[in-house]
């Protein structure tokens, strides 16, 4: 999985590309988030539009990232989950915790 990082105002957007599953992809998300927190970036938005599959380790990485951003007094939100990703976030109840948006403009302005 590839992670591209860009900014929109005070919001840092992580464009994920590839499956968020056990192994390198899950680790790289956690590392990227940790690095951004160290750089004092507090408003993170994860773009899931190019993530076809998420497994339980991927869910773990999202939860871990959410928790570390929250502990740093920041916010982590999600945008444009694919159909499968949305279903998974919904069943696991994460939609009630992870604010999720369908388009970038409203996601960015929500921070």
């Amino acid at each position: 999985m590839e992670i591209q990082i860009r900014t929109s105002g005070s919001v840092t957007i992580l464009d994920l590309n590839g499956n968020l599953i056990i192994g390198r992809s899950e680790e790289s998300l956690r590392e990227a988030v940790k690095k951004l927190i160290d750089e004092e970036r507090r408003f993170l938005l994860i773009n899931l539009s190019d993530v076809p599959t998420i497994d339980s380790s991927g869910i773990g990485a999202m939860i871990k990232s959410f928790t570390s951003v929250k502990e740093a007094n920041g916010k982590l939100k999600v945008m444009k989950p694919s159909r499968m990703a949305r279903q998974l976030l919904s069943i696991t109840g994460l939609l009630s915790v992870l604010e999720t948006y369908e388009d970038e403009t409203s996601a960015v302005s929500s921070f």
Partner: peptide, 12 residues
């Protein structure tokens, strides 16, 4: 009940 899976967040 749309509740989050267990073991994720202590504030829910």
């Amino acid at each position: 009940t749309k509740s989050v899976l267990l073991g994720a967040f202590d504030f829910v």
